[in-house]
Design a protein around this nucleic acid. Structure first.
Length: 506
RNA sequence: GGCCCGUUCGUCUAAGGGCUAGGACACCACCCUUUCACGGUGGUGAUACGAGUUCGAAUCUCGUACGGGCUACCA
């Protein structure tokens, strides 16, 4: 019988959720949905010094906004909780002790100062970062190097200590990565990582193995930065639960910024978001803008992220979430890192705005306009405006610039574009247009345009000479959709008022 | 420094021993548009380098170079 597919996203609540994390969420989600599996959100908050309040709730909000809800989490519940590692603290210790008993781990009593001294003393140009490994462990203070009675004494005195894994000598540890194929390591070159900290909390290395086992995780996806510590995890699986029980691993390629791994700094420096949603650091109050607030549609972000490192082998680029679920396969994920291209991200958003129906866009646009002070909006007008302007917007926030003039009469005009060619004849021409429009009972763009051109012809004025002034009268400048489309939506009173008002200024 | 991973247009990528190395973003040109955009058509542009295997290599092997990651009682 095939094992039930269960995957997890396991962030630590230390700040904003960036693109790399978002993509890990996505791939987990798609894989779970495709295989009828469960998607678990587990909070890895074992480092109390880095815990940031509000970060967990924020992660939930991001997943909710993106439509990538987990099936099990501290908020959704589930049969494998608690889903916060800090609440599972007592679980880990017995596994660490078991490892010591079996000779795969040991107690280490070295103080932070002693560790620092060791690193300082051993540091050379040839070896800039000395490790706590088999070459050095017998010279440190631990249950391997110390006499048994001395160890007992330290324990009786409650001396602070950690538990470290004892890496075996010259073994080759290898495993099959779903993306990269076989990866192998020489255990002699890996250090004796801390498994259980002095405060009794596990480190990531112990916690990830224990929890993946207890939560019956079948496939473990994580960023490529974890590849170097994979041999530790493989060994832990072997010692604790057996390799047969181990999930299948996939190490996802990194998302790169202009120089290396994408960071919050890159966003600030180059002017693009890196977090899914706005994040305010509770300590510094510093705000980092998110894709949501920048004006991205969740569908577009998902689509963009999915294609950053994966494709279905065809030339299709626009995928709905349902299509992604159907077509996604972890084997088609690339092994190489991908540089984040903000221009391409915006292109996806533009495509999704065009693809979305007017109805779907309306609530978002209405919210945006009201944030900018435009509140009294007739819904039939809004519908027409959105339909007319939609294709011109790349970001949701562009709707304001492309449509505010439907709701606000201009107070300034691009007079420099009109005045040099302005004359008495044009003044009279517009007076006639007003008289004509007052009598128009149809008020459709096409009839409005026809009568405008007829009046121009009768006055021996080329339409081109009065079209631009008309536009500027209505919207204030050289922009916007077709003038007669604007006029139709504005309606008779508003159009005539705007022309009259501008005429007094030109 | 050591270990691990990677390398096809500027960017994201297709091609898994066999057409002229295909598409998308960006860029450029033209068309459309009596505004600004959208849109349409076309164009510039890549297999890191060197060996080897082979009738034939972007593709397989080795080496080199370059890029990235890790090297904490952080994740």
């Amino acid at each position: 019988m095939r094992k039930q597919v269960r995957v997890r996203f396991a962030p630590s609540p230390t700040g904003g959720l960036h693109l790399g994390g978002m993509r890990t969420v996505l791939y987990n989600y798609l894989f779970a949905k495709k295989n009828g599996g469960d998607f678990i959100l587990r909070i890895e908050d074992t480092d109390q010094s880095r815990y940031v309040s509000g970060a967990e709730e924020y992660i939930h909000n991001c997943l909710n906004w993106a439509g990538l809800e987990p099936t099990e989490s501290s908020y959704h519940g589930g049969n494998y909780g608690p889903y916060r590692q800090s609440e599972r603290k007592e679980l880990y210790k017995k596994y660490a002790e078991q490892l010591v008993k079996d000779g795969h781990a040991y107690y280490a009593f070295d103080t932070p100062d002693e560790l620092e001294n060791m690193r300082h003393d051993l540091k050379t140009e040839q070896n800039p970062s000395p490790q706590y490994d088999q070459s050095i462990r017998m010279k440190m203070r631990n249950s391997l190097s110390l006499a048994a009675n001395e160890v007992r004494k330290l324990q009786d005195a409650n001396a602070p200590h950690v538990i470290r894994i004892k890496m075996p000598e010259h073994e080759t540890v290898s495993f099959i990565d779903m993306i990269r194929g076989e990866v192998s390591f020489d255990t002699s070159l890996v250090d004796d990582k801390v498994l259980l900290k002095a405060d009794g909390m596990p480190t990531y290395h112990l916690a990830v193995v224990v929890d993946d086992h207890l939560m019956k995780i079948s496939h473990a996806f994580r960023g490529e930065e974890w590849l170097p510590s994979a041999p530790v995890h493989i060994l832990l699986w072997k010692y604790l639960f057996g390799l047969n029980e181990m999930p299948q691993w996939a190490h996802l390629p990194l998302i790169l910024g202009p120089n290396g791994k994408l960071s919050k700094r890159d966003g600030a420096k180059f002017g693009f978001p890196v977090f899914a949603m706005n994040w305010t650091d509770p300590k510094t109050n510093e705000l980092t803008e998110g894709f949501k607030e920048k004006g991205f549609l969740p569908e577009a972000l998902i689509n963009f992220l999915a294609l950053l490192g994966w494709n279905d082998g065809t030339e299709q680029e626009i995928f709905t979430k349902e299509e992604l679920i159907e077509k996604f396969s972890i084997e088609r994920v690339h092994s190489g890192g991908a540089k984040f291209d903000y221009e391409k991200a915006k292109w996806f958003n533009h495509e999704w705005i065009k693809k979305s129906g007017v109805r779907g866009m309306e609530p978002g646009v209405k919210r945006l306009l009201s944030e900018k002070g435009i509140t009294d909006i007739d819904s039939s007008v809004l519908e027409k405006v959105v339909g007319l302007v939609k294709d011109r917007c790349t970001l949701l926030t562009d709707f304001y610039d492309h449509s505010y003039f439907f709701f606000k009469s201009p107070e300034k005009w691009d007079i420099a574009a009109v005045r040099p060619k302005w004359n008495e004849a044009k003044q009279l021409f517009f007076a006639e247009v007003i008289r004509n429009y007052e009598l128009n009972n149809d008020w459709k763009a096409i009839s409005l345009e026809n009568s405008f051109k007829e009046i121009a012809a009768a006055n021996q004025i080329k339409p081109g000479e009065v079209l631009l002034p008309l536009r500027i009268m209505l919207v204030g400048g050289k922009f916007g959709p077709g003038v007669f489309d604007i006029i139709e939506i504005l309606g008779k009173n508003e159009t005539i008022n705007r022309i009259k008002k501008a005429l007094t200024v030109f």
